[in-house]
Write a protein that binds this DNA or RNA. Structure first.
Lengths: 236, 236
DNA sequence: GCTGTTTGGTAATCGAGGTTTTCACAATTT
DNA sequence: AAATTGTGAAAACCTCGATTACCAAACAGC
């Protein structure tokens, strides 16, 4: 075992093939679509035989999950690194940085949001689980920053969980539109919009919310009760 | 042609079968998932033979598209009707109404958001097109209300297109979480969050934005330039 | 009641694509 | 140089599910 072939170590060759398969997967999934790409197509494009394919992955879905995880991990890495650099900055700068770096990372290539927010949706239960894990992570990230802002007195002191989830959704939706829109939406506008939305959502400036305890008003944000909803309400 | 069978007219029987197939589709798509439901399963559950299935639909996707369209149409109907009733109300009440009715309609049954925001994603090009049409419609809806708010002086006078798209994304993301979350998220909290987010996004109160023309600040919302982005920026 | 026509269910067909296997070759080790 | 084993291409296999074709049954007109 472990012979060096063609000058390179076997693990290296394996890794190369794996990488080429991932590249081919990203390309085909985002052009033909995940459903319609065949394993043989991926192999042909990657210059890899089906035999080797099954040596690296258990199937198409495995490739998709790996890509999905990679894209998210990459973004998280970048964001974490950037936030470390502005560890001492004020809360609002940190939030703006978080968003800018995220947007920059994921809009480098329109295929990234396409894969993450279109192709990897509704494929299987495992993938949905993986999606949820990532939403949780991103939401927690945003939540943490919001809480920091609250501690610094620039945002109200409240539960930010749902706000964070909604903001993740806003980013997802906007990026999904961005990669599909014709004519293309300017990236800067998307980034600016998200930044402004996020700041507005977190600061959520007073006006109608300044006087707590008037239940007659049509809107109001109290602390969420985060409890089970008995009888989810099925449609008959 | 046109014989009454079993006491009911043939078109009635057809319509009934169609309806039963749609019901079966909704159920199976949202439990087993679209990919893994077989046509024969749908037929079995609906009590309809495959022959009759192909008389009503061209395939699985046709059922999915019909359901997707129906759910959105239903919500749009409800929202339109509700807004007509508060035609004379102030802008903020209208926006709150829009959201409340939308949320109420689509959370009646967790299968509705599940189908719309999970199962119907990334299935085919046609479905993506249909999705985009609906996002456009909803965004236009929100945009219109925001503009009305601006005209009434309760919101800044600016381009609300991207904000509207982002808000649609926020609703989508929140509802997707809602139907998947364990333990379930309280519906009222989701509605309250979306209402608050939407109001905050549209009013987007001043603070750092009050002084236009300081490009050094890390954030800022100017009028978007809505133009083509030369060279989309592919990843190498 | 009988016949022709429309409807519905069942079963066979057909094809596509995923998965495995085989076979030949190349490289390395002794 | 011979043996051994990793490697890749291609073909065979095989499963599964969509689609169609055929047959049985129900109804209206005569």
């Amino acid at each position: 075992m472990a012979r060096t072939y063609g000058g390179v170590a076997p693990e290296q060759r394996r890794a190369d093939r794996r990488e080429r398969l991932l590249t081919a997967g990203l390309e085909l999934f985002t052009t033909a679509g995940f459903r319609q790409t065949k394993i043989t197509e991926m192999c042909a494009r990657a210059g890899v035989s089906t035999r080797n394919f099954y040596e690296e992955f258990t199937g198409k879905e495995d490739v998709l999950r790996t890509l999905h995880d990679r894209i998210n991990s990459l973004a998280l890495e970048h964001v974490t690194a950037a936030l470390d650099k502005v560890a001492e900055a004020d809360a609002m700068t940190r939030i703006a940085t978080l968003l800018d770096v995220f947007i920059d990372t994921v809009t480098v290539d329109p295929r990234l949001p396409r894969l993450n927010y279109v192709e990897a949706v509704g494929v299987s239960a495992e993938l949905e689980e993986q999606h949820q894990v990532w939403v949780d992570r991103w939401a927690t990230f945003i939540e943490t920053e919001a809480r920091r802002a609250a501690e610094h007195g620039v945002a109200p002191n409240r539960d930010y969980r749902l706000t964070a989830i909604a903001l993740v959704g806003a980013a997802t939706g906007l990026l999904r539109e961005w990669q599909a829109h014709e004519p293309p939406l300017p990236v800067e506008d998307v980034g600016a919009e998200l930044r402004a939305l996020m700041l507005a959502a977190i600061m959520r400036p007073g006006k109608i919310l300044e006087i707590p305890g008037n239940p007659g008003a049509p809107s109001g944000v109290e602390q969420s009760s985060r409890e089970g909803d008995p009888g989810g309400g099925r449609l008959t």
